[in-house]
Amino acid sequence: MNSTNKFRKLVGISALAFAGLTAANAVNAANWRYAHEEYEGDVQDVYAYKFKEYIEENSDHTLQIFRFGELGESDDIMEQTQAGILNFVNQSPGFTGALIPEAQIFFIPYLMPTDMDTVIEFFRESKAINEDFPKLYAEQGLELLQMYPEGEMVVTVDEPVTSPEELNNKKIRVMTNPLLSETYSAFGATPTPLPWGEVYGALQTNMIQGQENPIFWIESGGLYEVSPNLVFTGHGWFTTAMMANQNFYNGLSDEDKKLVQDAADYAFEEIIEHIDGLADEALKKITSKSDEVTVTRLNEEQIEAFRARAPQVEEKFIDMTGKRGKELLKQFKADLEAVKGE
């Protein structure tokens, strides 16, 4: 065989080998589906795309992302994840609380600090977050991959508010979360559960007089247009959770499980950097767009009037969740004390 024929044969073998390898990779590659609760460019969307970036740069898999409304409301995407239609979902404990009562712990007011560095350290180090919660989610067929903070909660109302008495008779929209309703009852308001898609119209028509959300969401959702009085009460941070359908996750190879975990960790680090300064930036955008907006930051004395009502919410949490919730709350507080150095 001359050298030319040898070369052609080698090329032919290489081409066949490459074709076989490509076919094998194509069989092993998958298109995964991921849904979250927010709009383009919002925190959950940024997290999702960082997760996607890591998955696609480190494997042959692809990730399809669905934003708020594309597959329905929060309850819809959770049902689709539990049914295995979606592989991944990002959902706040505000909605998951009906499914996992203990997740409502994030809605006990004044339990979480508002200092960002302390909050971040808590999410990194907390035993409750990183060991206890995954077990609770697993009971519902969900593999908890990451919990992370989005921003300090801000209340918007139809007029400036500085005391619980000034919230009397005001209907404040809450997520479909029993403990969040208890919080606003304690604060003196009338809690009104509504799905997100109805909130803007309800504020516009005065069906409700207020709501709470992180400031970036108030800006991106245009809520300040119909609820222009922003009140910083210091009562907590908005937390969210990214998870997978557990049957899907358990069926992955060890290599793909590590890929998914690494992608979740990578996206966490990216989102922590993203939210640094995000609230100030969003507030600046809001005040530049509207002359009607007022900003009220409660002083310590005013905050204390609200904080004094928090114990009844904590008691309600224990009533709802029993011994398991009580133990989780104890661990939660121990974790917080540890990161505060107390």
Rank of each mutant, 00 (worst) to 15 (best):
S3E: 15
I129D: 00
G234N: 14
W217N: 09
E40V: 03
N31K: 15
G12I: 13
Q44Y: 03
A24H: 13
L21A: 15
P193Q: 13
E143P: 02
W32N: 04
I100T: 02
T4S: 14
I65S: 04
M207T: 13
G210R: 04
L10I: 15
A202R: 13
N206R: 15
G41E: 00
V226R: 05
I13A: 12
A334Q: 12
F216D: 07
G221C: 09
Q140I: 08
P109H: 00
Q80L: 14
G94P: 02
S74A: 14
L10E: 15
M1G: 13
A186P: 05
L194A: 10
G94D: 03
A338C: 10
I271M: 11
E56N: 10
E121N: 15
N206Y: 15
M112V: 04
E125F: 13
L203M: 10
M207R: 12
E121Y: 08
Y224P: 03
H235I: 06
F88M: 07
E342Y: 11
K285H: 13
N177I: 00
I129R: 01
K323H: 08
K170V: 08
W237I: 08
Y34G: 01
V174E: 00
K50E: 15
V119C: 12
M242I: 08
V119K: 08
E301R: 04
D335V: 08
S163V: 06
A282T: 05
N87I: 02
H36S: 06
N229H: 15
S288Y: 11
D60V: 04
T321R: 00
S14E: 11
E327N: 05
V313Y: 00
K257W: 00
Y54L: 04
E269R: 12
T4E: 15
E300R: 02
E40K: 02
I77K: 02
P195H: 09
I172W: 01
I108K: 01
N206L: 15
N168L: 14
L63W: 03
E255F: 05
K316W: 00
S14Y: 11
H235A: 03
R324Y: 01
E327G: 02
A279E: 07
I108H: 01
M78G: 01
I120E: 14
E79I: 08
N28Q: 14
M207K: 13
Q82P: 08
N245T: 04
N2S: 09
G84D: 12
E301C: 08
R33Y: 09
N168G: 13
L144A: 05
I129H: 02
F216V: 10
M320I: 01
F238L: 09
L179T: 01
G210A: 12
F7Q: 12
K9N: 11
T233A: 14
G325P: 04
D254V: 06
Y110Q: 05
S126C: 06
I120P: 07
E269I: 07
A308G: 12
R67F: 00
K285C: 11
Q302W: 02
S92F: 03
D254S: 14
K170W: 05
A17F: 12
L99Y: 10
Q331R: 10
A202D: 09
P228Y: 06
E292F: 09
N247K: 15
F68M: 10
Y49P: 06
E182N: 07
Y137N: 07
N229I: 09
A244S: 08
N58F: 08
Q80S: 07
E125W: 14
R33A: 09
I120R: 11
R33E: 12
P149K: 07
I13L: 14
F238H: 02
A98R: 05
